[in-house]
Design a binder for these strands. Sequence first.
DNA 1: TAAAGATTGTTACAATATAACATAAATCTT
DNA 2: AAGATTTATGTTATATTGTAACAATCTTTA
Lengths: 158, 158
Amino acid sequence: MARQPVSSAPLAAKWRKLAEQRCIEKGERLTPARLAVYAEMLTRDRPVSAYELIGLLEQRQKRKIAPLTVYRHLDFLIRIGLVHRLQSAQTYLPCGHPDHAHESQFLLCSSCGHVDEVESRGVERLLSRIADEHGFRADKAVVEVKGLCGACAAVEPG
Amino acid sequence: MARQPVSSAPLAAKWRKLAEQRCIEKGERLTPARLAVYAEMLTRDRPVSAYELIGLLEQRQKRKIAPLTVYRHLDFLIRIGLVHRLQSAQTYLPCGHPDHAHESQFLLCSSCGHVDEVESRGVERLLSRIADEHGFRADKAVVEVKGLCGACAAVEPG
DNA sequence: TAAAGATTGTTACAATATAACATAAATCTT
DNA sequence: AAGATTTATGTTATATTGTAACAATCTTTA
């Protein structure tokens, strides 16, 4: 199976450098196929499902792409911290603060689909304290708040 | 299609009364089939997937049950507040504090599968404040902390 | 260069969830 | 009580999300 040349969405140099840096830190390899998935995600300002992403990539590359391929690339991107998975929506989102490692919380607008990624040390600390109080050793916290973003709240009733 | 009589897992009177009360409050109807799903969930002390639940119910009732049936009953139980869905695991869990309406947070042990349901007004307030600061109108928060419960943490390395 | 390990491709399939429409039961209206 | 309306259930099919197993290819390193 000769590997196809990968045609990728345009990717600003800063994102590429970021990805390279993260790979060095994590001892991972950056390949064209992996970068292409990241680039494709960056063309959207909304979370995408894995299969939406497959569709986008197939259009871009004019060929079939197996689900597993994309899932593997997503796993990679999550592993190096460039992508988040929204557990409550089963979708994927490029990290909004990719310049440093962090835990995130997400504000998901149920009207327009926009997601705000926020980074509150306070939430981290509080959840960590609560875990402690229950004799629980916390590893990772999923915090996803559903509601209406400012723009949509201004329009909707209520 | 004549409806089958439903053979149900044993269900303590207090759970039945609770379900009845919740239905009155919400203007919903309690049916044998719905109660049977709740009863089956209460026989487990762990979250179950929808399909595990289908299997349990099929064994109990000695007949095929369509996925949609169980999903509908789960939706009902969630609607009246007797069951939670764990978004990060895609599993379902009877509410641990079903006597009153509340938001919950969950501590999920990745080793033994046990889940602690906690109810922190502090978390609610903090998330609500953060949402406000971002001009976001919060509706519901998903808070699921993965890690090790006390018992498992005592055994595992680290 | 050869071996080892990581990445990708390919096929098939598992697990989770819903759509569309028919039937049955409960509730409401008159 | 009869018919109309709403709610709940049954049935079939299908959509969506995610993995297993294994072969082929590329990269790194000894």
